[in-house]
Design a protein around this nucleic acid. Structure first.
Length: 195
DNA sequence: AACGTCGACAACCGCCTCCGA
DNA sequence: CTCGGAGGCGGTTGTCGACGT
């Protein structure tokens, strides 16, 4: 059951935070070979990660069009509206927020919006426990105007950076053929992405 | 200055669905 | 038609930094 020392290919799957080197390997490999077939990708690239882990890392963090940083008020409203419509269909919601990942939206919802709902609930008494029904809350806000929704949720303080992403540039090499990434490229990408 | 608590986010896990053999 | 593998999705956990006492 335990690791077989003779079969060193399938042992030692790395877990936990990704290192800069791993990120570079993954980015370079995808830049040259494209994404998909994640299990074999992980193996071919020499990453000691599962295909799932590589896919997740790429989709949620390394992809060049991933926007990081503040969720704008517009995006927050959209999230609330779409969540009211579809419930916890995070990937579906994410499709309507270019550059945002389902994971990011999910985290945002759980840490921020849900907290505000909870607070609002304690104020208004227990009258609306349907709002907190995370496991599939739908439709309760579907008819709210956006301003109503904002009143209900009282968004966290935003500094005016609504258009901060309009001049986002894709740091990826235009042609995926034979391009290698350096540490500096990676760092600059992290900076552009708001990290 | 040290310690404890809380919040935000990255990553993992398990389940489900789809597709090809 | 069935089975197995891969991908996708949502839920949950772990980690780290910020903040308050």
């Amino acid at each position: 059951m335990d690791k077989k020392p003779c079969n060193s290919q399938e042992v030692e799957v790395r877990k936990g935070p990704w290192t800069m080197e791993e990120d570079l390997i993954l980015i370079n490999y995808i830049a040259n070979h494209g994404e998909g077939v994640w299990n074999s990708l992980a193996r071919s690239a020499g990453l000691k990660r599962t295909g799932k882990s590589c896919r997740l890392r790429w989709l949620n963090y390394l992809r060049p069009d991933v926007r990081r940083g503040n969720i704008t008020p517009e995006e927050q409203l959209l999230i609330m509206e779409l969540h009211a419509k579809w419930g916890n269909r995070w990937s579906k919601i994410a499709k309507h927020l270019p550059g945002r990942t389902d994971n990011e939206i999910k985290n945002y919802w759980r840490t921020r919006i849900q907290k505000h709902i909870k607070q609002a609930e304690t104020f208004t008494g227990q009258s609306s426990d349907h709002m907190m029904n995370d496991g599939g809350s739908t439709a309760q806000m579907s008819t709210c105007s956006t301003s109503d929704a904002m009143d209900a949720y009282s968004p966290p303080s935003y500094s005016a950076n609504i258009n901060m992403d309009n001049n986002y540039q894709n740091p990826f090499p235009t042609e995926s053929s034979d391009s290698l990434w350096s540490m500096e490229d990676l760092w600059s990408m992290q900076l552009i992405n708001g990290d």
